[in-house]
Design a protein around this nucleic acid. Structure first.
Lengths: 200, 200
DNA sequence: CCTCGTTATTTACGACGTAAACTTATAATG
DNA sequence: CATTATAAGTTTACGTCGTAAATAACGAGG
């Protein structure tokens, strides 16, 4: 039999392809990520990736997973950069916004509304879970320090929904021109903190 | 010269096509909305729509505008159905959620992240502005009744970001399975109301 | 009735995702 | 060491997409 692909070789190709896809995304936008361009980028024929991925959706799931991984890295670094709970939340929030705005093509892809069920892609579940876990950890800090009360997972999701909602409205061009996006984020965070602190 | 198209005939065709597109969206999902299927639905050749629309993006902009129009209608009806400001906000919120979940294909399209600049489509600007105006009106109610303080436009956007964020996370399948979407929305609204009411 | 301008259809092009047929190269077997 | 089975990779091909260009159909003015 011929040189069978070692798992390491498979993994290496998958990563090279993933990196090429991210480069195309970042430099030429989503419409540049086609099987043919991807193949050209790797100096390989358009059908070769099908040895390593089921189909294009499978590739996109891998790219999303990789995006969530970098996203989680960024938030974890921010988390460790502060100690005061509110400062931690602010730092994580800043890292979140920074990622969403600076790598907005990745962010769009990661939260695309017409993606196939994430449950079919275990590495994507793992990576997005890691990002979510950071937000829960940050919420726990707020609770433990008495800045908020309630279920950490629910509180994390309240803050997350707010941040994400403002960002995607901004990215979709739906915010009123009279509202400054970053002022909106500040006002949202302040308001939520006040609401979360109340003890009635 | 031949029967020249009267503006009324043009408008009639545009509306018929728009309705057909909405039907395809709702019944067979976004991938069914192709020029060829659209044409078949109208009993016309695939190139005919190009007499009435610049290109497919132009058609999608019209469908979005129509979606925003129905969306604004639903919220306006909810707005008028109550008098107490908090009840008005809740009713408008319920109408919002109802629309997003029951006509989720339309909602997805309306807030798609990779749509062309909305400013190029005046009727879309008008329709989405009408929806936004409803949220500002509802925020004004909260302020006038002393339930909130601050700029109505900013407050409207805070509430909007929260609602939209939670919904798109839900639609994208990103919410933790341990968090119930509608419980999350209730908790978010409660928290925001508390935060907005504080006078410090 | 013929002609011209307008509307609609037909045909055609290049790009897409990917199935199927084919080629190439190697590693195990005789 | 030559043979051969088989995995890896390429080529070709199909059906679909959006839409440009060529063509046909047709109705009002001369």
């Amino acid at each position: 039999m011929p040189r069978a692909l070692s798992p390491a070789q498979v993994e290496e190709f998958r990563e090279r392809l993933c990196a090429a896809a991210e480069r195309l995304f970042a430099e030429h936008g989503p419409e540049a990520v086609t099987m043919r361009q991807l193949a050209a980028e790797l100096g390989v024929s358009p059908m070769t990736p099908y040895r390593y991925f089921k189909d294009k959706d499978d590739i996109l799931a891998a790219v999303r997973a990789s995006g969530f991984s970098r996203f989680a890295d960024a938030m974890e670094a921010a988390f460790r950069s502060e100690t005061d709970p509110v400062a931690v939340s602010e730092a994580v929030g800043r890292a979140y916004v920074r990622f969403a705005l600076e790598q907005s093509d990745a962010y769009r892809l990661m939260f695309d509304l017409s993606q196939p069920n994430e449950a079919d892609y275990p590495e994507l579940v793992a990576a997005s879970g890691r990002a979510r876990e950071m937000m829960v950890a940050q919420a726990r800090g707020l609770i433990d320090s008495g800045q908020a009360r309630g279920d950490p997972e629910v509180i994390a999701h309240i803050l997350w929904a707010n941040l994400h909602g403002g960002l995607v409205l901004q990215l979709a061009g739906k915010l009123s021109p009279r509202v400054d996006p970053s002022a909106l984020r500040r006002a949202s965070f302040q308001t939520l903190l006040k609401g979360l602190a109340r003890d009635d």
